[in-house]
């Protein structure tokens, strides 16, 4: 094959993917970052303003208060996922991977089911269930003698974010479960047999043999949780609208970005500031991914069997 023909061949195979991906993914990403250094004037032209959008965002109280509020809430949202979703996922995966377990596939399929459904549908369903109007949640708690605990969780500033986070945990627990389950299945039986011969029971074998071996997967699960959480929007928008109320108590980066960019009852849409917030989200996510790639992943030993 001549060199020209070879290059032509490469171009034909690669061009469609590279063009679509560059146009609709990389270019918008770069253009958004670029936009964040400009200020859109009333006559439609843009003025280069350097980092001033960012200084406004981080220091002008009308911008910085909502920004830090959203950032703090987003960190909490992430922490709740790390402390509740991933441990539950780990326990479920550990139980599912036990040898000679009946109904394994059935449990796995059913527990993964909520993960498949649209966040909008899940959010609304839970809103109905938790609604004092329907009273199903209260009825359910009363059955266990816990009826007094029930409150308008979604409507109160102190509990709205926690409630929404737990609903998100409930929906997405399937992802850490499946990823960890796979990693556990990849561990050869001989290792566990050797451990049991040495006198360890199933629980000890899990803690001392399996857990260290799946650390790379736990790292991956953490970074995936991080990226997804700092990119979240749908659930809070579906349950609380763009204002993420009451009093912005459930506002996270995604909803703040949407509100600033599109405008809402309280303010007009602002392209430049919207881009600045998106760029901040990009930097946050990038930091998380970098920490994972260069700090966590580097230090981990990978075992191949």
């Amino acid at each position: 094959m001549s060199r020209t023909a070879y290059l032509l061949l490469l171009a034909v195979f690669l061009a469609p993917a590279v063009i679509i991906y560059s146009t609709f993914s990389i270019y918008p990403l770069l253009a958004t970052i670029f936009n964040s250094f400009y200020d859109r004037q009333d006559d439609g032209t843009s003025l280069f303003v350097g980092l001033s959008n960012f200084t406004t965002l981080l220091s002008d109280p009308t911008w910085s208060a909502p920004f830090w509020n959203a950032f703090r809430n987003n960190c909490l949202f992430f922490l709740i996922h790390m402390c509740v979703q991933n441990p539950i996922g780990l326990v479920l995966a550990a139980l599912l991977s036990l040898p000679r377990l009946n109904l394994r596939a059935t449990y796995r399929t059913l527990i993964f089911m909520p993960t498949m459904l649209s966040v909008v549908v899940i959010g609304f369903s839970w809103q109905l269930i938790l609604s004092p109007l329907w009273g199903v949640a209260k009825m359910f708690l009363s059955f266990f003698g816990l009826g007094f605990l029930f409150g308008p969780w979604l409507g109160e500033e102190s509990t709205a974010l926690l409630t929404i986070s737990l609903i998100s945990v409930w929906q997405f627990v399937g992802i850490p479960m499946i990823l960890i389950y796979t990693a556990l299945l990849a561990i050869p039986d001989e290792l566990i047999d050797a451990a049991t011969v040495d006198g360890l029971n199933q629980f000890q074998a899990f803690i001392w043999v399996k857990l260290p071996l799946i650390l790379p997967t736990l790292g991956l699960v953490s970074v995936l949780t991080f990226v997804n959480n700092f990119n979240a929007f749908d659930l809070i928008y579906a349950m609380k609208g763009a204002l993420a109320g009451p009093n912005f108590s459930a506002d996270i980066m995604g909803t703040l970005f949407y509100r600033v960019f599109f405008g809402n009852q309280l303010q007009l849409g602002d392209t430049s500031m919207g881009s600045a917030i998106a760029t901040m989200m990009f930097l946050i996510i990038l930091t998380g991914v970098m920490i994972y790639l260069f700090v966590i992943q580097r230090r981990m030993h990978r075992y191949s069997f």
Binding site: P28, L30, A31, T32, N35, N231, T271, A278
Partner: peptide, 8 residues
């Protein structure tokens, strides 16, 4: 996530 480029 591609969403971050939504403005553009």
């Amino acid at each position: 996530p591609i969403r971050l480029g939504s403005v553009a």
